[in-house]
Amino acid sequence: MNKEVIVIGAGAAGMESAGQLANEGFSVKIFEKDESPGGHLKGWYHLFPNRRDSVEVMDYLLDVIDRKEIELLTNTTVTKVSKKDGKFVVTTTQNKEYNADAIIVTTGFDLFRSERKEEYGYGIYDNVITSAELEKMFRNGNLRCTDGRIPQKVGFIHCVGSRDEKVGNFYCSKLCCVSAVKQAIEIREHVPESNVFCFYMDIRMGGSGYEELYRESQQKYGVNYIRGKVSEVAENYEGKLVLKVEDTLVGKPLKMEFDMLVLMVGMEMSESGKELAVNSGLLTGENRFFAPADHHFGSNKGNVDGIFYAGACTATMNLTETLAHARSAVDDVVDYFRRKK
């Protein structure tokens, strides 16, 4: 067929769809704004729910794109896609232009910037960290407070930047709950004598194997769960973090001290995705992610025929869903060229 397809973003969705495109016989260019492919997966330690090392998935994806039909251009941010006479022109920050017959946008998500939830003191108090930072600590085998102590009491604050009108995000980020459960287990494994508490509004265990992991965290690891959205965090004289919350099931306000607090940061439409949307006339939804053409039948399609979406640039999505979404985008590309004949 010898059609050229450009994939924008070399995260999990981009890499998987590039591999599938190559399988279908297209020649593929992937543009990646970072210096290496992998996206958020690069920063992750173990994956939920089966706690597989993320390196295994990373190796699989690197293998997927390691073929002659696929050209990877790193340190290259795409700013605009325009359509002319049924063909596409992709513009990068270096002001270079590339032609393509179809586009798959896989610009993914950015993590919520925790300093926006000021009352949690991220960036102000030592030892208030994000879930992403905790993954790096696990990866480096260096789970410690800033003064070098091993944390004995760790709290997880769910829904940071999700389900929160005050930061403009109405939606649920979907995978923070199960991430917290996984990370709570890992804290208990790293520091067996530690106490771990999760503060949640609802525990959302909608994926396969999630509820089982939640149960395991209680049965095997003694993780504690308190139902209440944390109101604020402060630091006391001993340098411990003091958290305030309502224990809604008891019906009383509660104070508790921690060595370390982990903010379960949610997902937002990526900045590069937003720029691309504005410059290219791609529609976005109320949640700021790319708006799919149809919730059920067109989740890979948008408002421009020939530009397809895959992964977390359309909605919060876990890795399993992202990889499946990437493959279904390729189906839509194949169908697009068939229709055009």
Partner: peptide, 27 residues
């Protein structure tokens, strides 16, 4: 400085040589 960590008074204290105490019930 906003509502959670206002800077209006802490800025004066530090500029004039003092140190600001941050304590749990500060806000």
């Amino acid at each position: 400085g906003g509502a959670e960590f206002p800077q209006v008074l802490s800025g004066m204290i530090t500029t004039w040589g003092g140190e600001v105490v941050d304590y749990p019930e500060r806000r």
